[in-house]
Structure formats: structure tokens, C-alpha cells
Design a protein around this nucleic acid. Sequence first.
DNA 1: CGCTTATTAATAGGAGTCCTATCTATATCC
DNA 2: GGATATAGATAGGACTCCTATTAATAAGCG
Lengths: 214, 214
Amino acid sequence: MDHAPKPDPVLTRLREGFERIALVLRADLWAAAGKAGLNPTQAQVLALLAARPAGLRPKEIAAHLSVSAPSMADTLAALERKALLRRTPDPADARAVIARLTEEGAAQGQALAAAATQVTAALARLSPGEQADLLLAQVKLIRTLQQAGAIPVQRLCVTCRHFRPNAHPGEAAPHHCAFVNAPIVDRDLRLDCGEHEAAAPAVQAATWTAFTGG
Amino acid sequence: MDHAPKPDPVLTRLREGFERIALVLRADLWAAAGKAGLNPTQAQVLALLAARPAGLRPKEIAAHLSVSAPSMADTLAALERKALLRRTPDPADARAVIARLTEEGAAQGQALAAAATQVTAALARLSPGEQADLLLAQVKLIRTLQQAGAIPVQRLCVTCRHFRPNAHPGEAAPHHCAFVNAPIVDRDLRLDCGEHEAAAPAVQAATWTAFTGG
DNA sequence: CGCTTATTAATAGGAGTCCTATCTATATCC
DNA sequence: GGATATAGATAGGACTCCTATTAATAAGCG
């Protein structure tokens, strides 16, 4: 009847933990969106596009948020009615459009992305060391998910051509970002950096080895 | 215009990481639910109740899943139509009902709760030590969220009267569960134990001190 | 160049979640 | 006994979200 292989119970418990936290994120999202007169999906689009001033194609937005393209078309139309977003033709491809936030939409999106929530309050109770370890675990998970094709390509430090892992071995801030030309600590690692430029695959592999092996 | 205090950027990044992973969980849920002919909310109810043979009240289920009671009534009605769930009057309170899974519903719920997903696959790539640290961080976060009232009371080892933190100091499995009368490791900590019995508040506080201080 | 195939986005139609507001029945407290 | 609170269900409506289809453009190939 059931032929799917069951994973190690520890993995199931860890997924369970993520699910619990995801439910709080969802409640937080409803609260924050409701305060702004939006619904959750609209708020997610605003928060996503607030970090992408150049805009994104509808299909890409749908992929980032794990919904179908028609569903996203619904949401984009709603945001356009509220004058928070504009869809313009893509000059590089006459089939495509580019969705960008208006000034008002960008302001709301930034507020939503940076707002304090129940989850950030709980995270604040962890020690700095625990926070750094948690961020590191997230980077590893997200990179794995990205490699598996479960999520679109993310703008992680560890896949960026400006990132120099363990450039300052033994020091408190061992890594280095060549773009801002400054050393960085684990807790500074970005999950969605605006200045990200993907490194070549071979470079990414080497970066990862230096990062994790250090 | 915006008076809400902004949290430390690290906390925002950590929340961002949880959000990314939550999107994958959502995609996993759609996939698993679709395979079973259900939709995501129905699947979540099945997975929740599969661990609660005694059943739960509709209001409690709604609280666990962060939706309103009327929404849950919709979903419970749908599951009842599919003969996966039964609602019976609560003998202890004539206003209340108890929702329990049928045999078929319990089988599907257990399969959903234990199934391998993209997230469990990614988690499997972490080292055992990283997995244990991550589980520990989740326990701390969930306990904090529970104390803040953001989520209903969870059946965590660290709030159970059978749990003896650091009963075997210095050993590989330092903790002990008096119910099964066996030592346990960090990675064995439960987030939703069927045998959980809440300890008195003062005992919980002492347990937590011994657990984290050890 | 002209034809086929792929890709991007929007639309149509429908199922179902999810909300607020309201209603009934029962419990609890004074 | 009567006021208040609580559990659940219902009504009505907005909106997400899906699959399937259509329109327009791009890209590959003889």
C-alpha cells in the first residue's frame, strides 16, 4: 500500500519543527498584511520585489513563491489595482513583462520585510552563537534545496563571485566580500544580497569547499 | 509614517531563512496532499490528528493550524464527507464535539506525517551534530513562542513531567525519560510526544534551567 | 526564408479556503 | 434564576489557487 521510503525519524522531527515555525510565520504574515490592507500573498510579493528594484517577471515571482503562474497573475492584477505595482513590457522580449513596485509599493514592501514579528522576537532570545549556527544551517539547507531544483536560484553569499571564504583565517571575521571590500562574520552572511553576481559553477564548488572546510 | 521598531538585521535574515524553507514545505505539502486527493489544509489536519488518537476539539485544531474556527469547520466537513474523520459529541461538555480520524484517515495522516520530502532530503545532508544543534534551536524557539502565546501548548520533552535533563552528566546520552525509563540524546528530543504530560510551572522552569545550564 | 515547436503571459471556469458577522445551545458565575 | 461567556455551526462574500485553453512572440531547423 505504501512504498515510499520513510526517512530517519530525526529528519521528520526537524521538518516538524520547521512546520511549527512556518505556522507562526503565516500568522505573522496575516497580521502584518491585514494591518496594511493586504492579504498574505500580496504582502509576500511586495516583500520580495522590495529587494529587486529592477523588477522580476511574473513567472519568476510565481516560482519564488511556489504558486502557479495564473495564481500570480491574479495577485499582480490586484496589486496593480491598488497602485502598488506596475507591469511594463520587457524590451528584451516582447512576450514578457516586468513587474516593478511603485514608490508606494516599495515603501510598504520594505516595511513588511523588516518588520518585527513574533518569530523575530523568539529569535532574539537565542544567544549570538546560536543565531550564527542557525544561519549557517539555513545557508546549507537553502543551498542544497537550490541545487536540487526545489527553489529558484537564491542570491547567497556562498554562490557569489565577490565572496572570499576564509580569506582571514583564524580571525573573528574570517570571510571577505570583495564588493564592499570588508571582512565579514558568519552572522553577516546574506540570503538575498542585492549585489549578488553568480560565480561560475567550478568557482562555486571551490568556494563551498573553502567555506565548509575552513 | 512608520513607528514600529526594526529588529536587528540578523534576526530579519534568520526569519528570511525560515520563510524560504517554509515555501518549500508548502510546495511539499501541495505535492503530498495532491497525491492523496486532498488539499493542503486537509492534509495538515490529517497529519496533526494522526498523532492524537484521542481526538481534538475543532477550536483546538484551528488554533494549532493558525486559522479561524469557521475555516476549520469547512475543512472538517470536507474530511467528514470523505470518511476520513468523524465528529462526535464530547461527553464532558454538551456544547463541544471531538474530531477523530477514521481508520482510513489515520493511515493517510501517518503516511503524510512520516513521508520523505524535499526538506527531509535537504536535512539529511547536514551532519549529525548540525542536526542536533538545529533541533535544539527549534526546541528553544518553539518553547519561547509557546510562552509568548504565539502557538498553543506543544508536547515538548522539556515541558514534560517525565523528562529528567542531565540525569547522566558527562555521558553521550545525558538526559532521561522516566516514562520509557531510558536515557536520551539531544537528537531524540520530541516536539510532539504522545506520552507527554505537562509538568507544573515551577518544575518546568527548573527543568529548563537544568537543561540549558548543563 | 518559412514552418514547427517552445515559451511567456493572460483568461475562463470552478473548487475550496478563509474571513467577519451572526445564531443556537450549553456552561459558568453571581 | 438570570447575566455573561464559550463551543460550534452557518451565511455570505472576497480571494487564492488550480487546470485547461488561447494569443503572441521567440527560437530552431530544413
